[in-house]
């Protein structure tokens, strides 16, 4: 028989997992790029990889403290955003899309290549960088929690910190998007020539947006590696598209959308994965092996997202009125 309690409690755990927080943060960065500014950044995986490697390499190879490692990651993503933005932000939107998708792949391949194995760990990746982060943990040793949410002190520390960063940056995004700065950014999304004709330096605003959203992606990359190891295969283009799926699920130009979208995405993924693997075990799906079952969850999540996009194209938090004017 299927252990439904187990399936649901596993799914519920994804609600507050650090991975969910990381995806929410990366999607929030994309909301700034795509939802508010209209920049088609297909390289969010690259920004996340810079955060992950920037942090891990700083700690492992240079022995930097946590705060310095975070700053190195942020610095690397600012430089990355400048390299992407300087040649492309003067051009049409699609050029940025092409350049970002290629640049993110270049980064991933550089991290994978054997040439830099001493620093990047090549395809095996990196681990053993969590010591200094765990040392900052003020929570005493032990297991805490209730119901399905039972974790040790490190896991709680990670969850609290990850979601604090998400909440703070969501508040910051909300603040700046209702300011005159946000008005210019949204104006650029609608028609950048009109905004230029009103005396705004469109190029500079697009660059600011690219850097800001990229830094969100970088911080997401750091949260993403704290419960696991750094593995270059995690930063494939599909990561960017999962983040896009989360963004569209929640609503592209919203603050809560990316966060709730990420929760729904991960809860659904965990639910389907648990359900299918148990169903195969119980012999409900005799035509299927466990390995095939592992892939089917992505198909089911894809179907679920398609249904949401078809029946609620503005996303969960999007404004229905906006769609009335989409060309």
């Amino acid at each position: 028989m299927i252990d439904w309690i187990q399936i649901f409690s596993n799914a519920a755990q994804e609600l507050i997992s650090p991975t969910t927080a990381a995806y929410a943060l990366a999607a929030l960065g994309l909301a700034i790029h795509f939802g508010y500014t209209g920049l088609l950044n297909f390289g969010q995986a690259g920004f996340m990889a810079l955060g992950a490697y920037g942090y891990a390499i700083s700690v492992l190879s240079f022995g930097l403290p946590v705060w310095a490692a975070i700053l190195v990651g942020i610095g690397a993503s600012v430089v990355f955003a400048l390299i992407l933005g300087i040649p492309t932000l003067r051009l049409r939107a699609d050029y940025l899309a092409i350049v970002t998708i290629a640049a993110a792949e270049i980064l991933r391949l550089i991290f994978t290549t054997n040439t830099f194995e001493a620093i990047t760990g090549s395809a095996q990746g990196l681990n053993g960088y969590k010591g200094s982060f765990a040392a900052l943990n003020p929570i005493p040793k032990g297991t805490y929690g209730f119901g399905p949410f039972q974790y040790n002190e490190y896991d709680w520390w990670l969850r609290i910190l990850g979601w604090t960063v998400v909440v703070l940056l969501a508040l910051l995004t909300w603040l700046i998007m209702r300011s005159p700065w946000g008005r210019v950014i949204k104006g650029i999304r609608e028609d950048e020539d009109a905004v230029r004709a009103l005396g705004k330096n469109v190029y500079s605003y697009k660059m600011q947006s690219l850097i800001l959203g990229g830094v969100y992606g970088t911080l997401a990359g750091m949260i993403f590696i704290l419960p696991r190891a750094v593995v270059p295969a995690n930063y494939q283009t599909s990561l960017t598209f999962f983040v896009y799926a989360i963004l569209l699920l929640g609503g592209a130009a919203t603050i809560l959308g990316p966060i709730v979208g990420s929760m729904i995405f991960w809860v659904l993924l965990s639910f389907f994965s648990g359900f299918i693997s148990r169903a195969v075990e119980a012999g409900w799906l005799p035509f299927m092996t466990q390995v095939q079952a592992g892939q089917l969850r992505f198909i089911l999540v894809g179907v679920a997202i398609m249904l949401i996009v078809i029946f609620r194209p503005q996303g969960i938090f999007g404004n229905k009125k906006e769609l009335a004017f989409v060309k």
Partner: peptide, 19 residues
């Protein structure tokens, strides 16, 4: 908002002051 965008020298259009 269209109208407000037209005003010039807005201090809130700077990213850091916007916060």
């Amino acid at each position: 908002d269209n109208m407000k965008l037209g005003a010039k020298d807005q201090s809130g259009e700077n990213l850091f002051r916007a916060m």
